[in-house]
Amino acid sequence: MKRRLSIFLGCLLVVANIGAYASPEDDRKALLKHYKQILPNVKQADYVLGALALNPDAKEQYDSIMMFPPFVNDVDVGRELWEKPFKNGKTFTSCFRNGGKNVAGSYPYFDNGVGKVITFENALNACLRHNDEAELKYGSNELGLLSAYAKSLSDGMKVNIKVEGKDALAAYENGKDYYYSRRGQLNFSCAICHVDNAGKFTRSEQLSPMIGQAAHWPEFRAGTELVTLQGRFRQCQKNVRAAPLEYNSEEYNNLEYFMTYMSKGLPMQTPVFRK
């Protein structure tokens, strides 16, 4: 009897735990609700525009710049890299389904085989490796430009990230912890600016909401200066006087995984101009 009671209580505890546990989908919905409250006039699809969605004048300037993007030649360099045959005659298209069209929105994904997050840049390098070519250095302009072109083939694709299984969830939670932890001499977390204070101004810069942030990379800043998402992580960390991590570090990849999940369902805009 006693044993049955304890089993019963144990079951109750499990049920209570499930009730209290926030899934990635719960996190995303809670965040959407938060932004609806603090930025009631922004349509969900416009979160991809970041701070531009909050400033009609800036958005108008952006639209006119994007009609003739100043970075077309840079993206062309990426296209040449993408189309150049490997020594075995194959190209990057052989490594991706659909010839690489509308695939980038499914990255990063969690690979249970290797037990870690695989970013789109990882997939590009894996393609080089499988074809006996030298990999490109993470953080290099070359890999950035290649990813800019390759991701442009997925422009408009809806972000479609999956977190399935306990290891994938652990990577997601690790990225989430990173986003919400304070660090650096200035003691900021990513969330203090981009969750708590989204829409407000620091000096004359308006803070973008986190949802949408991962869906429009790489960016070309001030016209032709290529900045990747992880390059932006590094800039932010320098701004708060924290030590930036290495490109392609496990922490940054997990952070990218978490942030991209938060942009789930939004149409990718790749690549884009930012001032």
């Binding site: 204070n197 101004f201 620091t202 000096r203 004359s204």
Partner: peptide, 25 residues
Amino acid sequence: DNKKGNCLSCHAVPNDPKAVAAGNI
């Protein structure tokens, strides 16, 4: 000074004409 206190990053100083482009956090 934005390398020192950088208070204007978040606080406005309405009565100081030199306190331009202040934040509102």
